[in-house]
Design a protein around this nucleic acid. Structure first.
Lengths: 351, 351
DNA sequence: CTGAAAGCGCTTACAG
DNA sequence: CTGAAAGCGCTTACAG
């Protein structure tokens, strides 16, 4: 019965159409929508009916311009093609949308320059806040972000960028990436390993990767074990990187009996390569990853890993940002708990 | 040297600030930005300098309101937690952002109701276009989408929703999901299998899943093979679903010698369960999945699968939408090519 | 090639 | 509790 209204009108209905139909002013309709208890129940009723009748959907651009809030949050991640970031984004998105915020997403594929472009693009959409991964960003990115005066949250790390010429900082919600490396080292040391390898993601412009290397190396050093340069290889994240890394490590002499990988994708690649090479994991080689991807608990032979609660990270980042937006109070830094999950590592084979 | 300007101004610079500094009208600045060759090179120069000097970033809300284009596209996917959707979103995002469009993303977790909510939320942000997965959506979703009068693209399927009480349709860019099932069936039949099982995702409200079942069953029937009800089990997407599905199938008598899974996540779960059950894959059991996730080419024993070019799908959807927005011409439907990738399937064990 | 001015569709003090 | 009106920061015919 409202077909005529819905189907025949050439124009999308406006707030004023609703107001006219309900016999009130546009101001009242606006209030009924954003501040329902400012209008009398009776009036509200009529307005809601008019809205339903017309199929009215507010225009976010106008609303954002008038109110100064777009109810959108931007996020820039390295890639969605790694489950670990996809999960975090999922956590971010679901928490935001429950609070009426939408997520504008962009990926920079590990390029600082495209991150800058992405930041510009998101800021141009008038996002209310921005989520970044890691503390290391191009000067231009920091400049723009600062100039925009919107809340910015750094995730995935609990450590401000080291090479700070910049005074710029932002609240951090993340993990202690050094501890990740330390947990791996201590675990492998406790099993009796003495010869190690590490396959890291590319550390340039990636503070998380660097800190993981750092923590691993430091913990080994504390135990009196040195990690030679050759025993640390950087590879692009991906199965192939893990495979190439392992291939390299396995031709070293003495051959490492334990390998720590910067994340689970590398670790899985290493595992697959070990299988191809007929290396007996875990008896001839123990592998520890990081992330605890769903697949990591399924795969055989077992893959030990450091569990990162990334979905929770996404949720936490979202709720932190929402509170920041609501109160105007910048939040404290937070460091989410991580834990080592042991599956199928063993001591070095006696020889 | 522009520190004073950048750091001390309390307000974010406006178009009018740029105009004042460059000594032109706001109209000219606006043109310099969106239609550079409408302004003299000389003038443009000065404007660009003023912009750089002030660190001006346009306000997207105002721009969207005035121009009627937000330069944003909304996408609603079932979940980002499956690599296959994450990849498609990545393809979508990168193509869009190259064209100056940003992606507003939402996930509905296989709930039609939350899809409706997501659609409303995105439409309220005044997106210029919308991308949906599958042709089956709540009545309310279709209504809103139609009322919004923006381009809407259906992806992942090449078939309009069957139970169309609705006259609503939208251009389709996707795969022939029936063919996926058919390819799996024909492959397994050609190996000599006669007893089959299928682990499908939940088919309710999921046309893609339904069509895959359909195609599998139809192709078997054409070869004179019936798929008994008990040999088809629906499971939620996830490793656990695959595991549970396989457990069920393996206790049937006669026991299936070949299993087709609705996607690779289910197939991997089935594979893991087979390993747990010490079933020799592929000799005692052949498994075929769908998607060709990166992991699927790495895993042992081999997993045959139907390769879906989902990254390309994302790109294609983006470019189609961009052209639609540019020309106003609704695009034709498109069906992307798929192909069977054979890895480690075998004929049934002789008995 | 450039400017003055209207207008995009909302929100929000300010009155009442 | 409600309305009249100004204003958010752009774009875009319309003139010149």
């Amino acid at each position: 019965m409202n077909d005529a209204l819905e189907t025949n009108s050439v124009e999308r209905p406006r707030l004023s159409d609703v107001a006219a139909l309900a016999g009130v002013s546009t101001a009242t309709v606006s209030r009924a929508l954003s501040n329902p208890d400012m209008v009398k129940g009776n009036t509200r009723e009529r307005i809601l009916q008019a809205i339903a009748r017309l199929g009215y959907v507010p225009d976010g651009a106008a609303r954002a311009l008038a109110s100064g809030r777009a109810r959108m949050v931007g996020a820039i991640v390295p890639t969605l093609d790694n489950a670990i970031f996809a999960r975090a984004v999922q956590g971010l998105q679901s928490t935001l949308s429950n609070a009426g915020y939408q997520l504008l997403i962009s990926a920079h594929e590990y390029s600082l320059a495209s991150e800058t472009e992405a930041a510009r693009a998101l800021l141009e959409r008038a996002v209310d806040a921005l989520v970044l991964v890691g503390a290391e960003h191009a000067h231009e990115t920091w400049d723009m972000v600062r100039a925009s005066r919107i809340p910015v949250l750094i995730t995935w790390t609990n450590t401000a960028a080291a090479s700070e010429i910049l005074t710029t900082t932002a609240p951090l919600i993340g993990f202690d990436n050094r501890l990740i490396g330390r947990l791996a080292a201590e675990h492998l040391l406790s099993l009796g390993h003495r010869t190690f390898g590490m396959i890291s993601g590319v550390t340039r412009h990636n503070d998380r990767a660097r800190h993981r290397v750092d923590g691993f190396r430091t913990a080994l050093a504390e135990a009196g074990v040195r990690l030679p340069e050759a025993n640390l290889i950087e590879q692009p994240f991906g199965f192939d990187g893990g495979r190439a890394g392992l291939k390299h490590l396995m031709q070293l002499r003495p051959r490492p009996t334990a390998v720590f990988c910067g994340n689970d994708v590398l670790a899985l690649g290493a595992l697959f390569e070990a299988q191809s090479m007929k290396i007996d994991v875990p008896h001839a080689l123990s592998i520890v990853g990081c992330d605890n991807l769903p697949i990591s608990s399924q795969i055989t032979p077992g893959l030990s890993t450091v569990l990162l609660p990334t979905y929770e990270l996404g949720q936490r980042a979202a709720s932190t940002l929402l509170e920041w937006l609501a109160t105007g109070q910048a939040p404290d830094n937070a460091c989410l708990p991580i834990e080592l999950v042991v599956r199928g590592t063993s001591g070095p084979a006696p020889n």
